[in-house]
Design a protein around this nucleic acid. Structure first.
Length: 419
DNA sequence: TCTGGGGTCCTAGGACCC
DNA sequence: TCTGGGGTCCTAGGACCC
């Protein structure tokens, strides 16, 4: 059996951990730059706030219903996620951390366990240990565990947060209940196509012919079908090193000058390089893009990206910042108001598999330099040590007007208790 | 009239996830 | 005025190899 554990309204729940006064109150969390809604508590969902709602359009609604609005606080969410995963890891030797708020556990050898009780135990442990509410779905395959989890979440009272699909009868009932567009792995496009075929539920989907599914949805669709049929097809996946590493941001105010963009792109390259070194990799190529605000059709639009093979593999912030700036110069055009830019490191390989070249290599001194840089930044705070090309005056601040404290990752934000 | 067979690598585009 | 960010996998087709 597989268990899928999913944190309920994760970001909103994180904001409540140190603010118990917000229990039962509507909460939304905004994306970077306080742009749009990326998480909602149940109360906010009930008020009809959609996912992705632009914050400026909903300001009046937030006010009217006294909705508590937060800027995204990713250090807090990342830390609480880590705590949740650590606790879940106690429940099975085999765990796959699927996303920041979800994990699969493989329950091999649990035949004589009361899984309902086991799910309840997970729930108690995580709630007590972190304050984050979770739902547990248990079933013979990953796709069915996803379905079971959905049921647990939808009917918290009846299921007490844990639902198990362990009989053919329950499987059929669950699949009949699940709308085709809500199946894990079926997105908007496929759902629309399936609807045209008369497929309304997950059960209908499993009754299509293998050939049709494979032809129109590739092997991915076929695997999913088998998994939903209760034939274990998808297995736990090991933690993999990333094949792409991106740092991209929208700007609060548009930029027009090359120098301004160069500073941003250098900073993005530095951030991406830090992530690259963290997984002990180098990259052989880089991609840089810029674009104007696509929502402003009244302004001249420009969007361009470029891909550059590097002369040698590297993970040095200094070298990558230089290459990123050179790439930017090739695509920059004067006369546009730029809204967003990004750096994506591609062609990633482990740093111990880098081929030395006879002619040109990454500066070997940068290895210890980057190590020192990372150590200092780790100790004294993110990007305390910067490159000279980066903004020294902190001109570029993200719009984060409703940021909560970093309760668990910053000593100065730690809560004080008055006795 | 008739023109082999079996591969790999790369890229763009499409689909999906959280 | 204001609209997020970061990933994965699969397929088809072209170029190329022996």
């Amino acid at each position: 059996m597989f268990a899928l554990i999913d944190c309920n309204n994760f970001y909103a729940s994180c904001e409540r951990v140190f603010r118990p006064d917000l229990n039962g109150k509507p909460i939304v969390v905004l994306s970077n730059n306080d742009g749009c809604v990326i998480a909602r508590s149940n109360e906010a969902k009930a008020l009809g706030i959609p996912m992705g709602a632009p914050a400026f359009e909903y300001e009046a609604v937030f006010k009217q219903h006294k909705i508590h609005v937060f800027s995204a606080n990713f250090p807090l969410y990342g830390d609480l996620s880590h705590r949740v995963m650590t606790l879940l890891g106690e429940f099975s030797p085999e765990i796959e951390i699927y996303s920041i708020d979800e994990a699969f556990l493989k329950l091999t050898g649990f035949d004589y366990y009361d899984l309902q009780a086991y799910g309840n135990e997970m729930l108690q442990r995580v709630t007590k240990g972190t304050g984050i509410p979770i739902s547990v779905g248990i079933a013979p395959t990953k796709a069915l565990a996803k379905v079971a989890n959905r049921i647990a979440k939808k009917y918290p009272k009846e299921t007490k947060g844990t639902y198990i699909i362990d009989t053919e009868e329950k499987r059929l009932k669950a699949l009949k209940w699940l709308a085709v567009e809500d199946i894990w792995g079926i997105g908007r496009k496929h759902a629309a196509r399936l609807r045209l075929q008369g497929v309304k539920t997950a059960l209908d989907f499993t009754q299509l012919s293998d050939a049709w599914v494979q032809k129109s949805m590739s092997i991915v669709g076929l695997r999913l079908k088998r998994d939903l049929e209760g034939k274990p097809t998808l297995d736990l996946e090991a933690l993999k090193v990333k094949k792409n590493i991106a740092t991209t941001r929208s700007f609060e105010k548009t930029l027009t000058e090359l120098d301004q963009l160069k500073e941003r792109v250098a900073t993005f390259a530095v951030t991406a390089a830090e992530k690259l070194r963290k997984q002990k990799s180098c990259c052989k190529a880089i991609s840089v893009f810029v674009h104007t605000n696509g929502f402003r059709q009244d302004l001249p639009q420009y969007a361009q990206n470029t891909y550059a093979k590097l002369p040698y593999p590297t993970n040095s912030s200094i070298e990558l910042a230089q290459f990123a700036q050179q790439a930017l110069e090739r695509i920059y055009r004067k006369g546009f108001q730029y809204k967003k830019a990004g750096v994506i490191l591609v062609d990633i390989l482990p740093e111990n598999q880098v081929q030395q070249s006879l002619f040109e290599n990454s500066n070997p001194k940068h290895i210890s330099l980057m190590q020192t840089l990372d150590d200092l930044n780790q100790r004294f705070g993110q990007q305390k040590i910067k490159l000279a090309v980066q903004d020294q005056k902190r001109v570029w601040k993200m719009k984060q007007e409703k940021l909560s404290p970093r309760y668990t990752t910053s000593l100065k934000d730690i809560i004080t208790i008055k006795v």
